[in-house]
Amino acid sequence: MNNIYINSIKQISAQQPLVEDWFEQPIFYSEPYIRAIEPDYKQFFTPNEVRRFGKILKRALLVARQVMAESGVALPDAIITGTGLGCIESTEIFLDKLVRDGEELLNPTHFMQSTHNTIGSLIAIDTKCHSYNSTYAHNGISFECALQDAFMQMKREDAINRVSTALVGAHDEMTPTYFNLLKKTPYFGKLNQAFAGETAVAMMLSTEKAEKTICKIEAVEKMYFGHETIDKFQSQISNLKISNPDYIMVGTNDKPETDNIYLENCAKLFPNIPLLQYKNIFGESYTAPALGVYVAAICLQRGVIPEHLKISGSEFQISDNSVNKILCYNHFDNKNHTFILLSR
């Protein structure tokens, strides 16, 4: 079976964009809603190139270009995108006009850019890449759906059209209006939960190890328990071949009903393995789990875990453990559970 490596990974988020400043100097926020820190796009794009693009498209295109350049892969064998809400800013503009002004004189650009696959197809158009191209839009597991697709195709050695390199992206923007709507739902309905953030992550996966390889992806598993009990969950998870990791990167977000599920499941399934967090500095968004993978990958690459990823109250010493294997565990609404095992 092929090995699968992350050979380059970049982010734009609430932390400094395109760099790893968060490792030494994380920015902590106390507001409930934080937009991503935008890079200076003028450095990267001509104005005409991006004149029609909303925020999500600029971010996606930039991180994609950067990982392609860094990994030296100009034409990946697959471009696979995960996005919970797609281009919600364009969707909102079109919808708002439609509802308020009626069904005339609507701008085609906003509609054209409202579909979720705008992001992935734009990257293909930018790179003239005719390869496999797909988009997953499944709320809190959109990124894992995309990663699973890439992982599965790259593992297949019998395919006629082999996939050896894949550009996997995870993108969500959060507009002020949509944040206000989501505050009325359980997703962002709690005071003091991790801030609502934005995600733009691109990673280049390859079956070939490179000089700059960041880490290896050992496993990608996802399960759905729409109706099941925790017992069923535990019997299923024990079938997964996930050997004991050094750390578990969990998606805790200071919402007790979410966090307790992580704590309970980890205590039963992986007792005594220290837990790490990332949403304290990157915030919550549908594709935030991609930032969890990003953080874990950088920790593996450096062989160190920064102190601020420690979950407050946990008792381990960061320096006690080796940093060879990190399991990223995410659940959304306790229905979808996903596991991504990374190794050095």
């Binding site: 579909t115 839009a137 399960m223 729409g226």
Partner: peptide, 29 residues
Amino acid sequence: ISTHDCGICTEMIANYFGVFSQVDTISTA
């Protein structure tokens, strides 16, 4: 508000039957 996104739609359909071990939503127009 919570039924807006594509993933919830897939889960609503799946949950009516309650037999699925994994769900995925594709959105390529």
